[in-house]
Design a protein around this nucleic acid. Structure first.
Length: 277
DNA sequence: CACGAGACCTGTTCGC
DNA sequence: TGCGAACAGGTCTCGT
């Protein structure tokens, strides 16, 4: 579920509150319930409890696909991976079989990490750079220019889609939004990155920003049983639309495998050639 | 350096 | 209907 727009949606809900639930800012952590030990990447379970209890949530934001909680003393980082979700509920709510970590707050609210597949991870660190330093630029950062993007594309000779999914190259894209952006730009996912013209690079960055902003505006994409609350799934052009007509030309959308990931393309609009105008 | 396969996990959907 | 295979919003590590 979690690519940049979904993580952004969750971060802003926790930070600003929503409907009936208040912002989590200035709430104090009173107690820790850990249900799956490997959820905790670092430190040890004992040290985590000792250090995090008593700390106050001062700020909440997103970097790439990470949720960042700035606490009074440390930073709590959360990566949702494939099936994670982070929500707030009242102390009285019933237990979820997939809850992996619960932070009980003063105020009687609970910050609940849900993760059916158990891939998600949580870090408690004094310096967030320990975890975040390797990440590439934020695609929505206005100071990240098309020229710089083009330069980065040309600093590798790699298949385009796996490169866009590489968080060291660019932070925040996942399978859904990458397929969507490539389709809008009419680029085949196997295009070699250093063959892309500066015009195409600029268009691609524009489309990446377009689908991410639209995803955020619609509170993310809800597919399957995992993430709810978003409705960008009704606006997807190719992702998981195998066999349906391309919204641009009507050809049947195909599913291929690229870098081991299911990939959705229009075979007519996204053709692989040696040069990209 | 770049790529593919396997690992980590559980739940749902597909195909025979 | 039933049952195993395939597949899923991610990322890491290893071998070639």
């Amino acid at each position: 579920m979690p690519e940049l727009p979904e993580v952004e949606t969750i971060a802003s809900r926790l930070r600003n509150g929503s409907d009936d639930l208040p912002s989590l800012l200035e709430h104090r952590i009173n107690r820790v319930n850990l249900y799956w030990e490997r959820t905790l990447a670092t430190p040890s379970v004992d040290e985590f409890r000792e250090r995090v209890i008593g700390q106050v949530i001062k700020d909440i934001w997103r970097r790439g696909k990470y949720l960042v909680f700035s606490l009074s003393e440390d930073f709590l980082l959360v990566h949702l991976r494939m099936s994670g979700d982070m929500l707030v509920d009242r102390n009285s709510r019933q237990e979820d079989p997939h809850q992996r970590l619960i932070l009980l707050l003063d105020s009687g609210l609970r910050l609940v990490f849900i993760d059916p597949r158990k891939f998600g991870r949580v870090w408690l660190v004094s310096n967030p750079g320990e975890v975040l330093d390797g990440l590439g630029p934020e695609p929505l950062d206005g100071s990240f220019s098309a020229a710089e993007f083009h330069e980065r594309l040309h600093s590798y000779r790699r298949q385009l889609k796996p490169l866009l999914l590489d968080q060291h190259f660019l932070a925040g894209l996942g399978n859904i939004y990458t397929d969507e952006a490539l389709h809008l730009t009419r680029l085949h996912p196997l295009t070699i990155s250093d063959t892309i013209s500066s015009l195409k690079s600029e268009q691609l960055l524009g489309h990446i920003r377009q689908v991410l902003r639209e995803g955020i505006r619609r509170n993310g994409t809800s597919i399957d049983w995992i993430y709810r609350g978003g409705n960008y799934q009704h606006h997807l052009r190719v992702y998981r639309r195998t066999g349906e007509p391309c919204p641009r030309c009507g050809a049947e959308i195909e599913r291929i495998l690229v870098g081991g990931r299911g990939t959705h393309i229009c075979p007519n609009c996204q053709q692989l050639s040696g040069f990209q105008d």
